[in-house]
Structure formats: C-alpha cells, structure tokens
C-alpha cells in the first residue's frame, strides 16, 4: 500500500523536477531561471524525504534542512544580484 503510493509519488516528483529543468533551460529571462532553481531545490527536499521513507531511515532529513536553508539564501542572493548588480553592498 505505502510502497505503491511511494513509487507513484517519486515518479510525480521526478516529472516535476524534469519540468523545472525544462523551464531552467528555456528561460527566457533570468528571474525565470532563478525561480526554476528555487523550485528544483524544494523538489530535492521532497525527494530526500521520500528517500528517507523508502529506506526507513531518518538519517537523511538533516540534508533536507540544509538544502532548505541554502536554497532560500541562494535564491535571495541571486534575486538581489539581478536587482542591484551586487550581492553585498
């Protein structure tokens, strides 16, 4: 039961990640690419959690936390670079 749902969910998240990669390559503008990277980050967190459930282990959750924090900081940094031309003024 859980195994079937888990496989379907993993497939859906991977398709979602591929769609994000499509937007990342296609653009057309820089903010689109940053947004695609940000969404890709969130999908990576989902995949890590799903991996944790598949392997019945909680060791990987800390990696999800790190990706969440780093992803937010990098998104803000890139958006700030696009807006101002520099990250730290």
């Amino acid at each position: 039961m859980i195994a079937i749902a888990l496989n379907i969910t993993i497939a859906m998240v991977i398709i979602a990640a591929l769609l994000n990669v499509y937007r990342l390559i296609k653009g057309p503008d820089a903010p689109d690419r940053v947004l695609a990277l940000d969404t890709l980050n969130i999908n990576a967190i989902a995949l890590i959690i799903l991996l944790g459930i598949t392997l019945e282990s909680r060791q990987y959750i800390e990696a999800g936390l790190l990706i969440a924090v780093m992803g937010f900081v990098s998104t803000v940094a890139m958006a700030k670079y696009l807006k101002r031309g520099s990250v730290i003024e």
Partner: peptide, 11 residues
Amino acid sequence: GFFTLVGAIGL
C-alpha cells in the same frame, strides 16, 4: 506528489 507536479506544470 500531485501538488508538487501541478506546481511544476504551472511553472
């Protein structure tokens, strides 16, 4: 999984 996929389709 559904909402993640829908978000990506929207993107």
